[in-house]
């Protein structure tokens, strides 16, 4: 039979070594997603390497040649990060995104790294009695022709139409965040935008990390643009629900026209979807409902919808327009 063993790592290095050494081992952080998966049978590790007590729970500012960054330890709890004064003042989209996620209890438990690495809530992925390429490569995608309300509309493949469920990750992409990763070969950095991937023909891989790479921190540049950011989530309940769509946005105006803008969508794709075409279309333009809608439509030109997801296009259009025009008004004030 299969044993589940548990070890509490005393250092990040030791944790990485433990996972490298055992193909059945997984990192255990706050547990809010992994423990769920253990019970569902979605994850069946033989060994849990507990990284939740590692000294990775600091939030601190660092000066870099490119300016100040906020360095957030991987184990910092979502509630603490959302409430951190520097996040509230300098990275409001991050605070808003965290507060829009899950529930008060879960935010007290979930870690920064765990939030990034949480897996899709596609109902078929979580139901081990149904085919799912993400859970069991090659078994087929049940969502493609099935319950589709929460499916992706951008960047999906015939193998997987799941969306990434994190709110926080969407904000982090808009804020140009970088993840710091420790692996067997040492430390590396990559933009959060490059952390998650599109499903292609390998939907079992959510991210570009190797299984024994440990996220140790996230670094967020403290810029003027980041300070003028927000996050807007549309969901089926007023609270405690995953996004139908969401928008992380940052905006800098030059008089009446857009000087710089970031638009990242949640609930749209297998990864936080940066709407670069829409961003480009908006720079130099006046910001009104029609301009934003037109810009959004350039991004949505490649969208593919089904009966149950067709609503996401007008919802993305409206939510993006509302978020940006609200940001512009707020900045005026």
């Amino acid at each position: 039979m299969r044993e589940l063993t548990y070890v509490r790592a005393s250092s990040a290095q030791e944790a990485v070594e433990a996972v490298t050494a055992d193909a059945d081992a997984m990192f255990l952080g706050g547990g809010t997603n992994l423990v769920d998966h253990l019970k569902l049978g979605v994850a069946r590790p033989g060994r849990l390497v507990d990284v939740s007590r590692l000294p990775l729970d600091e939030v601190e500012t660092r000066e870099t040649p490119d300016g100040p960054v906020l360095r957030v330890g991987a184990a910092v709890r979502n509630a603490d990060l959302a409430a951190h004064p520097l996040v509230r003042s300098g990275l409001p989209a991050l605070s808003r995104a965290l507060l829009a996620g899950a529930s008060g209890q879960i935010r007290q438990q979930a870690s920064t790294a765990g939030n990034l690495l949480q897996r899709t809530r596609c109902v078929y992925f979580q139901d081990v009695t149904t085919p799912c390429n993400k859970r069991e490569p090659g078994s087929g995608c049940s969502a493609l022709e099935g319950y589709d309300r929460y499916n992706a509309v951008l960047g999906a493949s015939e193998h997987c139409v799941a969306v990434h469920p994190s709110d926080m990750a969407v904000a982090m992409v808009a804020l140009d965040a970088v993840v710091v990763v420790l692996g067997p070969e040492g430390e590396r950095r990559l933009p959060v935008a490059d952390l998650h991937r599109l499903p292609g023909d390998a939907p079992q891989r959510d991210t570009t990390l190797a299984r024994d790479e440990l996220v140790t921190a996230v670094e967020l540049p403290l810029t003027d643009l980041a300070a003028r950011s927000t996050y807007r989530k549309v969901r089926d309940r007023a609270s405690y629900a995953f996004a139908l769509v969401s928008v992380a946005a940052a905006l800098r105006m030059d008089g009446d026209t857009v000087a710089d803008v970031r638009i990242v969508w949640g609930g749209a794709a297998h990864k936080p979807w940066r709407a670069e075409l829409a961003e480009r279309a908006l720079v130099g333009q006046a910001l009104d409902e029609d301009t934003v809608a037109a810009a959004v439509d350039t991004e949505l030109a490649t969208a593919r919808t089904s009966e149950g997801t067709a609503y996401k296009l007008p919802m993305l259009r409206g939510t993006t327009a509302h978020t940006l025009t609200t940001l512009a008004t707020t900045e005026d004030a």
Partner: peptide, 9 residues
């Protein structure tokens, strides 16, 4: 919410 949006495509 989707009932109140003009669904396109």
């Amino acid at each position: 919410a989707d009932r109140f949006l003009e669904v396109d495509r």
